[in-house]
């Protein structure tokens, strides 16, 4: 380490930061690749099919074959499309999906940037993902793509409010915006019973549903809506540009699952207090939440557009607001000393 430091001299902090970024992004891309395989396998099993099983043993090389195929395909820019914005859109969508990982803690020490406003940073960065979708839809010069972009913009704006309020509940519980402190506040002798999902159960559900909607996953995938508007906002994209949209969607799914685990399921904490805590628990919890994502895709039919809006504005937002009020009341001094309530509110 010391020799390396001497070799790079003044540039060392930069090199070290880059190295750690690569250390996060590469496993993330690997996880994205194998999440696509997992999705096809899981949905296959749910529909009593086998799923991909030809490329490599049990289909394990399928994601690599897919990636190679997409990389060698031609990138077509439609006539009269705004070519600069058309190419910029995938960049705009993959940037937030990657940048948000900067503050995600994998264990108390393992985090790229341990900043105090971590939760705010994540909300700000993820809210920028919508530009990729909107710009892609507009720049494509296609009506299907444009319809998809419109749907997506309205949907994301609606669900971000519910999501934000669910997170406000979490920060009321932990008195902190720092993700490490949010996890540490959930520590306790009762193990998993003291995780945030128990006292904040309605907010947990709201967060998960909004997460589905924010990542444009089924049953909220009207922005793609194959049966209505072909492929929605990315209908004109091909080859690697399409692959980037795909990558961003799956990276966002993993991000939302990790955040759900950190904020509601105790992050790296073990479910029982006699077990050692560690990163493995975070990965396990994330995988479970990801499985829920895949499960809901295989189970639910796509929502109609007006039903999505109704669910977002008239159901999820009132629920999260009400529960926020309940949590705020329970945090007050006289009530929070009562026997059962003081398990969570201390």
């Amino acid at each position: 380490m010391a020799e390396l430091q001497a070799f790079f001299g003044a540039a060392w902090p930069l090199v070290w930061a880059l190295f750690r970024i690569v250390l996060i992004v590469l496993p993330l891309l690997g996880a994205v690749a194998y999440l696509t395989l997992a999705e096809r396998k899981v949905i296959g099993a749910m529909q009593v099919r086998k799923g991909p099983n030809r490329v490599g043993p049990m289909g394990f090389l399928q994601p690599i074959a897919d990636a190679l195929k997409l990389m060698t395909k031609e990138i077509v820019v439609p006539s009269d499309a705004n070519s600069f914005l058309f190419v910029l859109a995938p960049v705009l969508i993959i940037m937030p999906a990657m940048a948000a990982w900067a503050v995600v803690p994998f264990s108390p020490e393992l985090v790229l940037a341990n900043i105090d406003a971590g939760l705010l940073y994540i909300m700000a960065i993820t809210s920028m993902g919508v530009y990729g979708v909107v710009v892609a839809g507009w720049a494509s010069n296609s009506k299907y793509a444009f319809l998809g972009a419109m749907r997506s913009a309205a949907q994301i704006v609606a669900y971000e409010i519910a999501m934000g309020f669910a997170l406000v509940g979490v920060l009321v519980m932990s008195h902190s915006l720092n993700l490490i402190q949010i996890v540490q506040q959930q520590t306790g002798t009762l193990g998993f019973l003291q995780w945030n999902f128990v006292p904040l159960f309605p907010l947990f559900v709201v967060y998960f549903i909004s997460g589905l909607a924010e990542t444009n996953r089924a049953p909220f995938d009207v922005a793609e809506g194959e049966s209505e508007i072909v492929a929605g906002f990315h209908v004109e994209y091909s080859g690697m540009t399409f692959a980037v949209f795909f990558l961003a969607e799956y990276a966002n799914m993993i991000l939302i699952s990790t955040l759900t685990s950190i904020m509601f399921l105790g992050g790296w904490l073990a479910p029982f207090s006699f077990l050692p805590s560690g990163m493995i628990w975070l990965l396990l919890k994330t995988s479970c939440v990801l499985f829920l994502f895949l499960w809901s895709r295989a189970t639910f039919p796509r929502y109609r557009y007006d039903q999505i809006m109704r669910l977002g504005w008239k159901v999820l937002i009132p629920i999260s607001l009400t529960w926020l009020l309940v949590v705020a009341l329970l945090m007050q001094a006289p009530i929070r000393q009562l026997p059962i309530i003081n398990i969570w509110f201390h």
Partner: peptide
């Protein structure tokens, strides 16, 4: 970023 970039400008663009 959260308010202007993430919400207001999206509606503007819309």
């Amino acid at each position: 970023v959260l308010v202007y970039v993430g919400a207001v400008m999206v509606l503007f663009l819309f």
